[in-house]
Design a protein around this nucleic acid. Structure first.
Length: 105
DNA sequence: TCCTTGACGAGAT
DNA sequence: CATCTCGCCAAGG
């Protein structure tokens, strides 16, 4: 199992209405400090991956997307709101309310 | 194999 | 709260 696959699998496990941070995802995959790598993976994520990439935001709960691949801040915001997650004007979500936590603690 | 790239993060200023 | 700096890492050229 490659890091990339573990990441995708983890994200695929994030339930609707919840979000996770890049760092949290990296940690869940065994690399607490590979948050940046996670971003790199999502950047090159195939469109038909079926992975809910929009449920991944940075540690502050902010949508930190830059360019315009298939994804844009606007799109991610729509996807999240469609999930029932509130996104404010600054493209931020309240992590305290929506952060997805693993079963154990 | 070395070098560059970021959808990052935590801390200091 | 806005910036800057530095550390971390998988991927790709």
């Amino acid at each position: 199992m490659v890091f990339r696959d573990k990441v995708l699998r983890f994200i695929a496990g994030v339930p609707r209405g919840k979000v996770v941070s890049y760092g949290q995802t990296a940690a869940a995959c065994g690399y607490p400090r590979a948050s940046r790598a996670v971003g790199g993976i999502l950047k090159s994520l195939p469109e038909d991956s079926g992975v809910p990439w929009w449920r991944v935001v940075n540690a502050k709960g902010e949508i930190t997307i830059k360019g315009n691949w298939t994804a844009t801040k606007r799109l991610q915001k729509d996807m999240l709101e469609n999930d029932g997650v509130l996104v404010d004007e600054g493209f931020k979500v309240n992590m305290r309310l929506y952060r997805h936590t693993l079963q154990a603690k």
